[in-house]
């Protein structure tokens, strides 16, 4: 109850700090999601329709990476971007860009794995047809992705959930710097550490509300699109 009060209070106050934290969280997560989709959708589709030796192993690897612990992803990106690491000269550690990179690593396997499964099923069903129309495997990818868009949306939303909910990776590579790399989840961790449990839970409720809003919007969009397609 106290937490709900804290959440409502924070929203009503229109707190500038809260707004910038929410803004950063959304920016980082959406950017990571966009990058992961740009790579993962075509990659997953290709994996779904192609046949090559070792394909099974690749699929197992991609599926297993869906369970990559965020802390490990964070640590890998940290070591990569650290000044003593191979990409240290870029000076990207403790920046929002580093957080985008880490979250992309987390989301990419989910988008790729879901796309692979969906497209593989679709290809099994319509591959014959597409090929008889003279479409090569690679040229069939955009068509398949487009036809599978509603199923793929679920995979993309799962990726969004993974990115927006994790704290381990962004904490390590972002550093939870106030006003710079502090996100919803790292704020929740910090407020918990300060013993401000009601405030921490209040922030959690706001984060959950955002996830609800985005998933609701996606649902409504897809329903509208289906109706338009049927009409």
């Amino acid at each position: 109850m106290e937490a709900l009060g804290a959440a409502v209070g924070l929203i009503l106050a229109g707190d500038g700090e809260l707004l910038s934290i929410v803004g950063l969280s959304l920016r980082v997560t959406l950017m990571a999601l966009a990058l992961a989709c740009a790579v993962g959708l075509p990659l997953g589709a290709l994996l779904g329709i192609s046949r090559f030796p070792g394909r099974g192993a690749v699929i197992v690897l991609v599926n297993a990476l869906m369970g990559l612990p965020p802390v490990v992803a964070g640590l890998l990106v940290y070591l990569l971007l650290s000044r003593s690491g191979p990409l240290g000269d870029l000076g990207l550690l403790f920046t929002p860009t580093a957080m985008v990179v880490a979250q992309t690593v987390l989301v990419l396997p989910i988008v790729t794995a879901v796309t692979r499964q969906v497209v593989e099923d679709l290809w099994a069903e319509y591959g014959e047809q597409l090929r008889s129309l003279g479409s090569g495997r690679v040229r069939a990818v955009p068509t398949l992705l487009w036809d599978a868009r509603y199923s793929l949306a679920t995979g993309v939303l799962a990726g969004f959930g993974r990115a927006s909910a994790e704290v381990g990776a962004v904490l390590i590579v972002g550093g939870n710097i106030a006003g710079h790399t502090r996100t919803m989840t790292t704020s929740i961790a910090l407020e918990t550490a300060k013993g401000n449990l009601a405030l921490a839970l209040g922030l959690g409720i706001i984060l959950l509300g955002l996830a609800l809003a985005i998933n609701g919007a996606a649902f409504a969009l897809s329903a509208a699109a289906r109706r338009a397609a049927a009409a």
Binding site: L26, R27, L30, M31, L33, C37, A38, T97
Partner: peptide, 18 residues
Amino acid sequence: VLLGLAVAAGLAAPALAQ
């Protein structure tokens, strides 16, 4: 996809400015 990327990049830009 490109449009989505462009929008995301635009959203991220202010945070990345240093």
